[in-house]
Design a protein around this nucleic acid. Structure first.
Length: 579
DNA sequence: GCCGTTTTCGGCCCGACTGTTTTCAGTCG
């Protein structure tokens, strides 16, 4: 059975929480439903299985009432309370909360007083001046709601990390021009290296926070100031991207950075731990019961005070990292210095812009020991894929570069097409002569689940295929992943010793953090590669590295963390030294 | 609604900003 019931149950409890909140029920009941939803979604096991085993209550946040609702759902397919609330509340009412500045109270007010059930109706009513008469609302509120609707329409979708990072760096560069700024950092999901970010968080340290906030609002990139206080400001750039700035004094830098990096759930967990110790944690530091403060100049101080190992930002999702930090069993995450080479780059022999020598020199300059040139194969005609003959010609150039740059090594490889019929684009005897084979799907992307999964499984069973390239096929914001049975892919990867690629291109990030964590848990091997078509793209390895770290990967799970001889022994179909 | 080597009842994460208020509620991160 799949994990679908976990997802469905999580969404039912979330909706339940939203509807109860709208009706003004106890906030703690609402929080309880949301917490349960989170834990159900992140549970490593199917709740249906847990229920059969009578172990539902072992899931944190699931008590008597929620357990019985889960049972209700699993036996009848419905949750009566959820259905009842749905009848009282047209679905459109919940959608009003999408407007920035409109929460449950306002949404419910709009529905109760004016019968409004859609964003369009809110806009009409606001323009007709019908909102200002409502309790607690004046002209300003009406204007604010109209602005919120405008933001909603303009709000760009989440943007890839690789796009947001340069924007953030430009903003930091601008802020460095403010004389009152002492320290600067990015924070939020950008610092946690989520594959996509919704906004950009920036924090600064200064003895005069107000001066920094004012300077920030006047940066040339800023198109609109949404809010501006003594220590915080929110602005929009031309393209609608939202930037949040927060400023505090030096002695609180650690707690500020920790607070603003999040995630929200991670922070809530830390504050609960603090309370257990009789402390209250905020961005200002720890407050003792007597009102005295424990300041945290550095982020490490926050974790130290809570008797936790330092938790790297990439792990802060309240997905088990706090428990692991307390029990001193955090993973030793793979780092940049661990990577000894890039196992997926193209050259001018197919659709690359840089030639083999340039790629190799750039890789060597980065401190790598090797690089695998993996040009496309013939059936990907659009990328000038290699025929067997041209592959042979390319070999001469690779050997020349190897003589030149020794002991640096260029591995002779291909990114072989997994064709729509499931066969590979080059015969086995040709693949056998190559140092490294990446197999990728570029066609038949819309095939049904069993068929496309079968193609990848077949590729992994080929004794010469070392790595599956960009395994899910996702292109962020453009293309959905293939309909893959990823659990089956993981089993086969472990069984055949085939590595799964973490493709570092910012628009791919495939595997992503979630898949990496599953792969690590399953014991599959990973390869962090860039898929570079030009030397500049070798830098993108940092994004793939970030996905690996977010997925709790240690160096031992990543094949390109070892030196060349050890790498050979990790690849398939290589002659092994006699023991 | 959940939870407990300080509790089976009484807690439950913290603070800034805004607008409509004359002390606070709603929203957000």
């Amino acid at each position: 059975m799949g994990r679908s019931s976990n997802k469905e149950l999580a969404s039912i409890f979330r909706e339940l929480a939203d509807m109860l909140e709208m009706k003004g029920d106890t906030i703690y009941k609402i929080i309880a439903y949301r917490k349960a939803a989170d834990n159900i979604e992140h549970a490593t096991q199917d709740v249906a299985v847990l229920w059969q085993q009578g172990r539902l209550r072992e899931v944190p946040g699931i008590g008597e009432s929620i357990a019985s609702k889960i049972q209700e759902y699993l036996t009848t397919g419905r949750v009566v309370l959820h259905d009842q609330l749905h009848e009282e509340m047209p679905p459109g009412v919940l959608s009003l909360r999408a407007i920035p500045g409109v929460g449950p109270k306002t949404a419910w007010l709009l529905y109760q007083r004016l019968g409004i059930t859609s964003v369009a109706e809110v806009e009409r009513a606001a323009k007709e001046g019908k909102l200002r008469g409502l309790p607690g609302m004046g002209e300003r509120s009406e204007e604010k709601i109209l602005q919120g609707i405008e933001m909603l329409h303009r709000r760009s979708e989440r943007i890839p990390l690789g796009i947001a990072l340069p924007v953030a760096q430009a903003l930091l560069a601008g802020l460095r021009g403010c004389p009152q700024v002492l320290r600067l950092s990015t924070a939020g999901s950008l610092r946690r290296c989520k594959p996509t970010v919704g906004d950009i968080d920036v924090l600064a340290v200064s003895r005069e926070p107000q001066a920094v906030v004012r300077f920030f609002a006047r940066l040339p990139e800023v198109a609109e100031v949404v809010s501006q206080g003594d220590t915080k400001s929110t602005v929009l750039l031309e393209d609608g991207l939202q930037i949040d700035l927060m400023v505090l004094e030096e002695t609180r830098y650690g707690s500020l950075l920790q607070h603003f990096t999040g995630s929200k759930d991670h922070n809530v967990h830390l504050r609960e731990l603090a309370l257990d110790q009789g402390l209250s944690l905020s961005e200002y530091g720890f407050t003792r019961p007597d009102g005295g403060m424990i300041l945290c100049p550095e982020e490490e101080d926050v974790y130290l005070t809570l008797e936790l190992d330092y938790i790297p930002p990439e792990l802060r999702e309240d997905a088990g990292e706090v428990e692991a930090a307390r029990e001193r069993r955090l993973p030793r995450l793979v780092q940049s210095v661990d990577l000894k080479g890039d196992l997926h780059v193209h050259s001018t022999w197919s659709d690359g812009v840089s030639n083999i020598r340039e790629m190799a020199q750039a890789a060597k300059a980065r401190g790598y020991e090797y690089i695998a040139v993996t040009d496309h194969t013939k059936s990907l005609g659009i990328a000038r894929g290699l025929t067997v003959d041209r592959l042979r010609e390319r070999q001469a150039e690779i050997e020349e570069v190897n003589r030149e740059l020794a002991p640096f090594r260029v591995l002779s490889g291909v990114e072989v097409e997994v064709k729509a019929d499931g066969t590979l684009d080059l015969p086995d005897d040709v693949l056998a002569k190559l140092d490294l084979v990446v197999a990728s799907v570029h066609s038949g992307l819309r095939q049904e689940r069993d068929r496309i999964t079968g193609r990848v499984l077949a590729a992994m069973r080929n004794p010469h295929v070392d790595i599956i390239g960009h395994p899910t096929g996702v292109i962020l914001g453009e293309r959905e992943p293939y309909d893959l049975d990823f659990a089956a892919i993981l089993r086969e990867a472990v069984a055949t010793g085939t590595a799964l690629e973490i493709n570092s291109m910012p628009n791919r990030l495939d595997l992503d953090d979630v898949h990496v964590r599953q792969a690590v848990a399953a014991g599959a091997m990973l390869a962090i590669s860039t898929d570079s078509h030009r030397v500049e793209s070798l830098e993108a390895i940092g994004f793939g590295l970030a996905m690996a770290r977010r997925g709790w990967a240690e160096p031992a799970s990543v094949i390109n963390t070892v030196s060349f001889p050890a790498l050979l022994s990790r690849l398939k179909g290589q002659p092994r030294l006699a023991s």
